[in-house]
Design a protein around this nucleic acid. Sequence first.
RNA 1: GCCGGUGUGGUGGAAUGGCAGACACGAUGGACUCAAAAUCCAUUGGUAGCAAUAUCGUAUCGGUUCAAGUCCGAUCACCGGCACCA
Length: 805
Amino acid sequence: MIKYEPKTIEPKWQKKWLEEKTFSATNDTTKPKFYALVEFPYPSAQGLHVGHPRPYTGMDIVARKRRMQGYNVLYPIGWDAFGLPAENYAIKNHIHPATVTRENIDRFRKQIQALGISFDWDREINTTDPAYYKWTQWIFLQMFKKGLAYKKEMSVNWCTSCKVVLANEEVVNGVCERCGGEVTHKVKSQWMLKITEYASRLIDDLDGLDYIERVATSQKNWIGRSHGAEITFGTTAGDELQVYTTRPDTVFGATYMVISPEHAYLKKWAGLLANNNAIAAYQEEAAHKSDFERTELSKDKEKTGVKLEGVEALNPATGERIPIFISDYVLASYGTGAIMAVPGHDERDYAFAKKFGLPIIEVVAGGDIEKAAFTDCETGVMVNSGFLNGLAVEEAKKEITDWLLRNNKGEAKTNYKLRDWVFSRQRYWGEPIPMVWCETCGWVPVPEDQLPLELPHIEEFEPTAEGDSPLARHDEWVNTTCPHCGGPAKRETDTMPQWAGSSWYFLRYCDPHNTAQIAAPEALEYWMPVDWYNGGMEHTTLHLLYSRFWHKFLYDIGIVKTKEPYSKRTSHGMILGENGEKMSKSRGNVINPDVVVDEFGADTMRVYEMFVGDFEKAAPWNTSSIKGSRRFLDRVWSLQEMVLPSEDCRPEMEAPVHRAIKKVTQDIEQLKHNTAIATLMALLNDFLASGGVTRGEYKVLLHLLNPFAPHITEEIWEQMGFGAPISGQSWPVWQEDKTKEDTVEIVVQLNGKTRAHITVASNIGKEEAIALAKAEKAIAEGLQGKTIAKEIWVPGKLVNFAVKG
RNA sequence: GCCGGUGUGGUGGAAUGGCAGACACGAUGGACUCAAAAUCCAUUGGUAGCAAUAUCGUAUCGGUUCAAGUCCGAUCACCGGCACCA
């Protein structure tokens, strides 16, 4: 027998699969379809690291098994290649992002192909390809036409030294990551997408989907639907202040108000206010903080704020005058940018009131407001609240909301934490936003027949001194004519965020070479929705939500026929470094899969990554235990020397074989690849212990192992002369009656402690089992002189006597 | 801070409320070898015992149950996300 040499057999099969298009999906509608999707990678300059193959291999196993079960499987891959790192790399090294991106993609493709993932390489896509982003731009234009894209003044991070708009990630401890310079906020006019218009549908439509619990919960919490009321407070300035609250029942306890430092009334009221200087100073201070810092409620963080001198509010319930403060814990971006403060029943308000010596009134009895805010809605009863007194919180909410409506002082309101999507980036390496500004006509879309609006080739990637995209420097590109009136006009120079290209890529895979449409309607109808989408938890809120939003929009305009893009969503855990920390270049704990493939082979790499632990949980890499996976494959290989003459399964092997088929088949569908592999290892150990393997048994083992270790199994299959490749064969089926043994071992317990084991017929009944258990010596002794309070029988497993005395 | 998650031998991990530690890695001893590597065999949660066995043991404290790693409450530690990283 020749030695197991992954280095020769792996490239052999990879070449064959590519040449024969073994894994290319066809639009064969006679077969049931299965669309498996993994998040396409950002092709970074660092190349693939061992974290990437985990989801690819995990879904590859499902895809390969489903093909053998007769499904027409679509398992595609592509490149999410626009983005900040390529641009920053370009600025630093003076290499064009397009060049860097091309090189990175070539490297990634080579690395992934060396792993034997059954991707359909005929459908590879690339978000930076104009033929692809033509449709990203097209979708944006449709949104603009439907009023879902609009311009708004938004604040961005601004490095005062580099004069660059910074991503949040580039702001480290309040200073610029590159130069350490001071970071402030700068207001820029930005394109926004109205995702909030879809907020309720994005929550409600989760119900019919098979998303793992924590993903669905995260989506719901992120959208943050709450039911409450909008209440109108009068002011001594004559203007009305709207607040949103989820606790309208506590309005009698509102002893002051807080508005965000950015609130528009501050400007309006300047003439009435005596302390404009203090207010301006506070606004300046707040401008330096992120929303994240502002809402942080750490123990040692003191609440800050400034009282407005000269304007007071009127509590609509009590009619009393109450002070108004500005404080940074109130965000302009949530609700109305103003709150009624109820220190007795809100922790932040309580801390603020204590700091500023403001009155705290108890309006819900049940806690001790001397010590802390009482926030329990379940048990509280209303007090000090006029006509609400004596009511439970939920009743009081209804009562006060009705009262507010009758008195024209407010109404019930559903609110969302979700904010509209800031869609502009002042960067080069992204899809140009296909809009033109005309002094006469305003914002005019680039006509659809002029798409794609290609990104011009430039050599200078530094943003302008005003913080505009580097595209702004290229007058010959910027200056154009208005598509509407023909007059002089300027192109939008902002580009789209990286999220854009990944918000619809799963549709393009259905028909990736179509030049006339996103994809042919028949292709979309056949393949969509994605049957199973696996991705990282880090994409649970943003990418997943953005792509669901775009899909719903495309549904509304009739492009797709399903309301949701993904039927099922699962999530894999990260591969951590050997030290248990996240793998990163800066920590120096990155493992390159090439090294593993070179030393052990791709099949070992695949088996190890799937065996390392629960697919859904993070797992630390451990180089020294990889050899266990290699040893397993070596033993499967050397089984070739132990083949017994018989074709059939030996009688004593029927139960282990059928149980293994069942276990592996079921485990794969639950992504429990680690226990599936353990089952195969145990089956192999059974074969070795029995002195060999029959041809029939060997076939089953190779078949079940094939999705995990495709190269070695195909090679052995061929060398054994088993016929056509396994990838074209049908998946084994188990027979339930053959998985069962005739006898089972039953555990006998006294008060839950194991005291004996009995071996009985597997179909034994309760009475008989209990009688046999009582006959056991250890049990009989234990029961002596005691009363049996309860006899518990778990069929086929356990007898437990609860005894007293 | 807010939201979501995790915590089991020396290590990675397994366990529909029903024998905790499957399957591996490592370690120890042995076989083979001039020797080493590789391979094969045996042992391997702690404590006591020659052993049968007993007893403790799933982050901490408490609860529910005939029975808890699993369910409930509190605490601690760690990880992911927090809207311009992807």
